[in-house]
């Protein structure tokens, strides 16, 4: 399993408690938008960011959090933070 596939899998686990659109969740891909597709409410988006911090033991600054509205951007932020650990 490539790193990216594993990351998407992990991310899927993380967002699972907050999603409100099961179909979009089942078909999750890099293009999936947290709000428009998964219908995660914006307060829970903060939980997603905190869960990601806990899982990878990374700190996500506000500039990075700013971008984390979809799977692709979130993966990029996680990879970047992991690389600079």
């Amino acid at each position: 399993m490539s790193d990216k596939v594993k990351l998407i899998d992990d991310l899927k686990e993380i967002v699972k408690p907050y999603i409100q659109d099961q179909e979009a969740f089942d078909n999750i891909s890099e293009a999936t938008d947290f709000i428009n597709d998964l219908k995660i409410n914006s307060a829970n988006l903060v939980d997603v960011v905190l869960d990601i911090e806990d899982k990878y033991d990374i700190e996500i600054d506000n500039d990075s959090m700013d971008k984390m509205l979809n799977v692709k951007a979130s993966l990029e932020v996680i990879q970047e933070k992991l690389a600079s650990k």
Binding site: Y18, N41, A43, N44, V46, D47, V49, L50, E53, N62, M65
Partner: peptide, 16 residues
């Protein structure tokens, strides 16, 4: 909100 969000969670207030 009472059911689905916990504002007392560590880091939550700082993020917002």
């Amino acid at each position: 909100t009472l059911k689905n969000s916990d504002w007392t969670r560590r880091g939550f207030l700082d993020k917002i």
